[in-house]
Amino acid sequence: MAYRPTWQGHLKLSLVTCPVALYTAISSGGDVHFNLINPKTNNRIKMITTDPDTGPIDRSELVKGYEVSKGEYILLSNEEIASVKLESTKTIDIERFVAGGEIDRLYWDHPYFLAPDGKLAQEAFGVIRTAMEKSGQIALARVVIGTRERILALEPRDKGILAYTIRTDAEVRKPDEIFAGISDKAADANMIAIAEKIIEQQEGPFDPSRFVDRYEEALKALIEDKKKGHTPAKVAEPEDTNVVDLMAALRASLNAKGKGAAKDEPNSKAKAAKPATAKPRARKAG
């Protein structure tokens, strides 16, 4: 299957350039997509572009408008928007190299694969890619994708380059805006000890094949049931853990994970040798 590039242009490191193509690294897979249906007629609803004064209008006649005040717009044609020329519209110009650990994971956004565009580009691409690999650092560059200039983080991956769009500082909320209301009170040490044991039981390598979209799978199962005329069963909502029963819930979780570990972990025999439960140390009086 031939993949279509999202963007085509040049990769530039100082005075070295080569034609490259940017491909999205993720796919929608088998996502379930819905259409709006009129249940009375079973017809799919069509969205008609309408002007409140003149009625329906062809989308090809429309232009983009920026609202400068209520009801007042600056109109821009596609040609006028395309006339905004930045070097990053056609060039991924590497500006800086940084250690990967310096980029907060909050800023990582969408992954792409960057590859040479044509056989003649492969030599220069290979030089840039290999030099990046030897540096052990992440390259930061700019590119215009769609109508937005984005920061790209570039790092070697296999024979090509993995490119991630990086969110701007204005896009990322400050954690204190959300976390400020969390209590500073320290958690119970005995409960933490049990929770650590539960974490230890669930340790293992990252295997992406084990993580499927269960909601998508459940939707597909629901659709199959409906096709067969079955009535879907209702699923009960999970109850919040009662603070009074938190210790009991932690101990029950520890026991449950201990019993199920052999099914999930191939090397669970070594872990099974450990005690299934850990009694918390008694607090000293006073």
Results as ranks from 00 to 15, higher is better:
3 Y>T: 14
5 P>Y: 08
6 T>D: 08
12 K>R: 15
15 L>I: 15
17 T>M: 10
18 C>R: 01
23 Y>D: 03
23 Y>N: 00
25 A>R: 01
35 N>F: 08
41 T>F: 03
42 N>F: 05
43 N>I: 03
44 R>L: 05
45 I>C: 06
45 I>Q: 02
49 T>L: 02
51 D>N: 15
54 T>K: 04
54 T>S: 11
57 I>C: 01
59 R>P: 02
60 S>D: 14
60 S>L: 12
62 L>W: 09
63 V>S: 10
65 G>K: 09
73 Y>I: 03
76 L>I: 07
80 E>N: 07
83 S>E: 10
87 E>F: 00
88 S>M: 05
90 K>R: 13
93 D>R: 13
93 D>W: 07
95 E>P: 01
96 R>Y: 04
98 V>G: 03
98 V>Q: 03
99 A>L: 04
99 A>D: 15
99 A>Q: 13
101 G>V: 06
103 I>Y: 05
104 D>G: 09
104 D>M: 13
106 L>W: 02
108 W>F: 15
109 D>P: 01
111 P>V: 00
113 F>W: 12
116 P>D: 01
118 G>R: 08
119 K>I: 01
119 K>Y: 00
123 E>K: 11
127 V>S: 06
131 A>V: 14
131 A>Y: 05
133 E>C: 00
138 I>Q: 00
138 I>S: 00
138 I>H: 00
143 V>A: 14
144 V>P: 01
144 V>I: 11
147 T>Y: 09
148 R>L: 07
149 E>A: 14
151 I>N: 02
151 I>D: 02
153 A>E: 03
154 L>Q: 03
155 E>G: 03
157 R>V: 04
159 K>N: 10
159 K>T: 12
161 I>H: 07
161 I>V: 15
162 L>K: 05
163 A>L: 06
167 R>Y: 07
167 R>E: 09
169 D>L: 08
171 E>D: 13
174 K>T: 09
176 D>S: 10
176 D>Y: 02
177 E>C: 03
178 I>E: 11
178 I>K: 05
179 F>N: 04
181 G>C: 06
185 K>L: 13
185 K>F: 06
189 A>G: 02
190 N>W: 04
193 A>F: 11
195 A>R: 07
196 E>D: 14
196 E>V: 11
198 I>E: 10
199 I>R: 14
199 I>K: 14
201 Q>C: 05
203 E>S: 12
203 E>F: 04
204 G>Q: 04
210 R>Y: 01
213 D>C: 10
217 E>F: 00
221 A>T: 14
226 K>C: 07
227 K>P: 00
231 T>L: 13
238 P>C: 05
243 V>T: 08
243 V>I: 13
244 V>M: 10
245 D>E: 14
247 M>L: 08
248 A>H: 09
248 A>I: 07
256 A>N: 08
257 K>G: 07
263 K>M: 09
264 D>K: 12
266 P>T: 11
267 N>G: 11
267 N>K: 15
270 A>G: 13
270 A>I: 03
271 K>V: 12
273 A>E: 13
274 K>S: 08
274 K>E: 11
275 P>Y: 12
275 P>M: 12
276 A>K: 07
279 K>I: 13
284 K>D: 08
285 A>T: 12
